[in-house]
Simulated scan of single mutants.
Amino acid sequence: MTVAETLISSRANARVKQLRAAFAGNARLSDGLSAIEGEHLLEEAVRSAIALKMVFVSERRPIPRGLPHGVEVLRVTDDVFASAVETQSPQGIAALLAPPVHHLDDVLEGPKPLLVIACGLQDPGNLGTLVRSAEAFEAAGVLTTPGTVSAWNQKALRASVGSVFRVPVVPATAEEIAGLKRRGVRLLAAVGAQDAGVEAAQDANLRGACAVMIGNEGAGLSAEWMAIADARVTIPCPGPVESLNAAVAGSLLLYEASRQRAAAGAQR
């Protein structure tokens, strides 16, 4: 790694401005780079071989160990660091990185891929949790439709706890989602138990190639998504609730798919 000798004390420094733009989600001003904050996310990025461009360390923090060779480390004053990041209690470590780029074919390589489709999710915590669950239950990837929050949103990043560095997150159009059916992937709409023609998750066949469609937190799945679904699945709830949180519902369906696949493998 290369450590800058001069302590940066100006909020107008070009690299500090680039970091600030990345935290704000301004891809143009950040040159397409994304930002992360905190020692844990930095460790996860290094472990996942993510392309780090710069690491920013406040004057009160030691330089992290194990950084890849060639990464530039910039020392900044505490107040300049605080001006660039989003958290109210900065941890003193941040980085700019090149987010990995994935394509639809990347998540369809296996014989029976398990996918999650985020259809207009707007809560970054829900999306990040789904990405985390996708890794936990060995899903091939997460597809995001137009209107879904970015997986590189700061809250989504924190909710994924680093899984976003390893799980392919692929933007997909409605046409591409519908095209999955021609490639042998069943589209399963996650709905509430009160909907008609619904299968309980444990009764649905989740062992083959399938994609679980999770709708918007407030409106659920639109008529457009429901029209292309091959089946509707729900998670039976004995308690008096109408529906589950989007991330909880998606995670439980991924667990059920993982359970069925493990059981099928044990039988073979």
Rank of each mutant, 00 (worst) to 15 (best):
A95I: 09
A95K: 05
A95S: 08
L96G: 14
L96R: 13
L97I: 07
P99H: 07
P99M: 08
P100K: 11
V101F: 07
V101N: 01
V101M: 07
H102K: 03
H102A: 07
H102R: 02
H103W: 08
L104N: 01
L104V: 08
D106W: 03
D106K: 01
D106L: 06
V107Y: 01
G110K: 10
P111Y: 09
P111Q: 00
K112A: 15
K112I: 00
L114Y: 02
I117M: 11
A118K: 04
A118V: 10
C119W: 08
L121V: 14
Q122A: 15
P124G: 10
N126W: 01
N126Q: 00
L127R: 06
L127T: 08
G128H: 01
G128R: 04
T129R: 13
T129H: 14
L130Q: 08
R132G: 13
S133V: 04
A134G: 04
E135A: 15
A136F: 02
F137K: 01
A139Q: 00
A140G: 08
A140I: 08
A140F: 07
L143C: 03
L143G: 01
G147Y: 14
T148N: 12
S150A: 12
W152T: 11
W152Y: 14
N153G: 13
N153L: 13
N153A: 12
Q154V: 02
K155P: 01
A156V: 00
R158E: 03
R158G: 06
A159I: 01
A159Y: 11
S160N: 09
V161A: 15
V161C: 15
V161Y: 14
G162S: 11
S163F: 06
S163N: 05
V164F: 10
V164G: 12
V164S: 08
V164I: 14
F165R: 06
R166D: 03
R166S: 12
P168V: 02
V169G: 10
V169C: 03
V169W: 00
V170D: 10
P171A: 09
T173Q: 04
A174T: 03
A174N: 03
A174C: 09
E175H: 05
E176A: 01
A178L: 09
A178I: 04
A178M: 06
G179T: 10
G179Y: 09
